[in-house]
Amino acid sequence: MSLALIVLASAITNNIALTYFLGMCPFIAISKSLRGAAGMGLAVTVVVVITTTVNYFAYRFVLVPLRLEFLAFVVFIMSIAGIVQMLEILVERYFPSLYSIFGIFLPLITVNCVILAVSLFMVLREYTFWGTVAYSFGSGLGWMIAITAMAGLRKHLAFSSPVKNLGDAGITIVLAGLMALAFLGFQGMLA
């Protein structure tokens, strides 16, 4: 029950893109097409679950016993870079059809702040193992929902003419603000 709550809370009420502003660069840059956005969202969800779980073990069973917690940043980012690289090779080799959906986004993911942030939050909030899995899955899912919805909204921009000085990025930021406002409405749902 509480695990389901963690998933829902991280995916909807505390959406990682819209309340913590994480992963904004790809959120703005890759939300031009629906297909691209969904692919990126899927890739982020897969990678975030795997890396956070690995980082959980690395932190709990290596860094804490050795009192090397201050090295967490280096260890986390290296394991993320390594896992992403490995995943890219494996997916390209064994699942070519999957690779065509989200393979091209994998190299971009290492510098996606969502991935590192979920690992850092995992440490700060002291989740248990299953809590970590639930939290990382919820966060990835929430980010995917947000970017896919954004791509859908941006499609409709073709029919409207926003203020010229706002530019392409500016109007996306306004849309993100409106979406954040809408997601605020879920806040009372999980009390």
Partner: peptide, 21 residues
């Protein structure tokens, strides 16, 4: 809170682009 931050950044971008032009 989050929505206000987005709106504020967007309004600053408008001002910046106007100045730049």
């Amino acid at each position: 809170i989050a929505p206000g931050a987005f709106f504020l950044l967007a309004s600053i971008i408008i001002v910046f682009n106007m100045l730049k032009r």
